[in-house]
């Protein structure tokens, strides 16, 4: 990783000095990241309430229990839906925004850019609360729209509706992270060769063709990163979902992390909760591995 890329004039510092400098970071990182991560793996095979030593060994029992729990299935499914929506709805929208405000500018373009980016700066919890009012059953936007179109006295409480609540949350998630991906694409667009684009236009390419054959291939790296962050972020979503209903109504909006919190932490089921954590990690890891292997590698070769 680190090559000795020079002829040394004089070696500076020594092993002990280096270790002394690294020590604070090492201790902090080991105590609060490495050990807990390893423990999560260890506890995942026990039935344990966090008191005394973990001794009730269950083998893969926790994982088996998970596969039989319908709420876990809902959580997993919600996470997958979220990933699909992020990739199919959020990323194209973010790209569109980047195309609108990221290039040849018009007056006020920076203001628009800030407006699009602003939701990302908000705390997830704050985002959730703002949207809770937008979805308010009595005066929220869905209710008002329904009344506008003639349904007098309609009351639409999407967040209270098990069949609709998660869709309502999806809207909030897309709203929240759209601006972040837009910024990534704007940065990517700056690397697109203007000459190449002009050449395509000169050759009679339509705007769509320019986007399809010049711009998108040029920002491939950015897309690769944006997809990666979307998937990993989706697997770990918690705050927004929590603020909009803590996984309810009747567990319909549960995601893997709210499931971990509700069925692990809240019930002092540290073994079971750790098993859920292991599943989340394995999913991220598997994705990371396959992605690096098949997508990122291809990119560095091509």
């Amino acid at each position: 990783m680190i090559g000795h890329q020079r002829k040394k004039l004089q070696t500076m510092g020594s092993g002990p000095v280096a270790l002394l400098l690294i020590a604070p970071a090492f201790v902090l990182f080991t105590l609060f990241v490495v050990i807990p991560v390893i423990q999560a793996g260890y506890y995942s095979v026990f039935h344990w309430n966090g008191m005394g030593p973990a001794s009730d060994f269950r083998g893969l029992g926790n994982f088996r229990q998970m596969t039989q729990h319908p709420v876990f299935a809902t959580a997993l499914q919600n996470n997958l839906v979220l990933i699909v929506v992020s990739l199919v709805v959020q990323l194209p929208l973010a790209f569109l925004l980047a195309m609108l405000v990221g290039r040849r500018s018009f007056p006020g373009v920076m203001i628009f850019r800030s407006i699009f980016f602003f939701p990302y700066v908000l705390a997830e919890i704050v985002t959730g609360i703002i949207w809770k009012f937008i979805y308010h059953p009595q005066v929220g936007v869905p209710t008002m729209l329904a009344r506008l179109f003639g349904a007098d006295g309609a009351q639409i409480g999407l967040l209270g509706e098990p069949n609709a609540a998660f869709s309502a949350i999806l809207v909030v998630v897309v709203w929240k992270y759209l601006g972040f991906h837009m910024i990534l694409y704007i940065a990517g667009l700056q690397g697109v060769s203007k000459d190449l684009e002009d050449a395509a236009v000169v050759d009679g390419a339509s705007k769509l063709q320019v986007v399809r054959h010049v711009i998108i291939p040029s920002i491939r790296n950015t897309i690769v990163i944006s997809v990666f962050l979307s998937v990993i972020g989706s697997l770990n979503i918690f705050d927004v979902v929590w603020a909009l209903g803590q996984g309810g109504p009747v567990h319909s909006t549960e995601t893997l992390v709210t499931y971990l919190y509700n069925f692990g932490f809240r019930r002092f089921a540290f073994g079971y909760g750790s098993a859920v954590a292991v599943v989340i990690f394995l999913l991220s890891f598997a994705f990371n591995f396959l992605y690096q292997r098949f997508i990122v590698r291809e990119q560095t070769n091509g």
């Binding site: 807990p36 991560v37 423990q39 999560a40 506890y43 971990l260 932490f265 540290f270 750790s274």
Partner: peptide, 13 residues
């Protein structure tokens, strides 16, 4: 390793 993965043992720690 996101924080979520280690959150329970972190609590115990």
């Amino acid at each position: 390793f996101p924080l979520t993965v280690a959150i329970l043992p972190l609590y115990l720690q």
